[in-house]
Design a protein around this nucleic acid. Sequence first.
DNA 1: GGGCCCGCAGGG
DNA 2: CCCTGCGGGCCC
Length: 314
Amino acid sequence: MNDVPPGTAFENRRAVKDAKLHKESEAGISWGRDGEDERAADAIVLNNGYEDDVDEWHEITYTGAGGQTRNSNSQTFDQSWENKGNASLRRSRLMGNPVRVIRGSQGEAAYSPASGYRYDGLYEIVSDWDEVGRSGFRICRFKMIRLPEDRQDLTSLEQQVKEILDRGEVGAGGDADAQVRRRRATIDRIVRDTAVARRVKTLHRFICQVCSISLQISADGRSYAEGAHIQALGGPEGGPDVDGNVLCLCPNCHIKLDRGALYLTDDLHVVDRFAGADAPRRVPLRTVEGHQVQKRFARAHRRFWKIMDEYGSN
DNA sequence: GGGCCCGCAGGG
DNA sequence: CCCTGCGGGCCC
């Protein structure tokens, strides 16, 4: 169902809806029912409908629904968390459901299509809060961060449910809700491998280049690691899928790198910006023969996260 | 399944 | 700029 690749263009809202990317014909927030029968958002449209929206491509500060009279994009009264769209986005933030982002031609010029609409992939809602907006009324806010390219093939909320129904597991298992929850709990650990990632992981014998952990996943001594891109793939300024841009990392270090909590210095040390008192703040990157990390990707990663290297390189 | 309400349309 | 209209949710 969600086999539509990011970058796909649509003429109008009707076409977006027909492709099942977003259910509404006009509203910005689309939702469905999750495994616990709660409303959970699955998609948003970003089309300059709200004056407080901020779009920086990889990071979006979205405004919730409501607070304005039709056909105006300025706020005339307070928004509410009771609003179904706002509540559903909050629910997706809580449950970790990514949302599809569709950009319309009225949005931020640098990142929006010239006409019509474009599906731009999955974003994770990382926080929600409310504040007073530009016009002086309370608005609901959501910060969303684009999932890295190797996680863009995650199934959508509906597809998780649909797959279970299609397989007939509901009748057999008896507890559809539990199965949906179980899938959701594991789904964002699925990471697609490329040949480059496999080669780098094999060279490192699946040992994390940051924390040196070797995650044992079977009795025969096999271990698990992920190929992590330093400069993320895709997007307007995406990095390449080459050895020099890939690290062999454990899942914990991978997510920290993807979120900018870890960064690399020019002399290939790793800095944990939010390390606790008991954890090392700066460690050398583990190296092996035959795998050379290129510092230009470390620079691109720091630039992307607006990180000033406190240890000198920039 | 009908009536009603609503909105980041769409077209003048 | 204003006005019409459509589909989804949701209540009967």
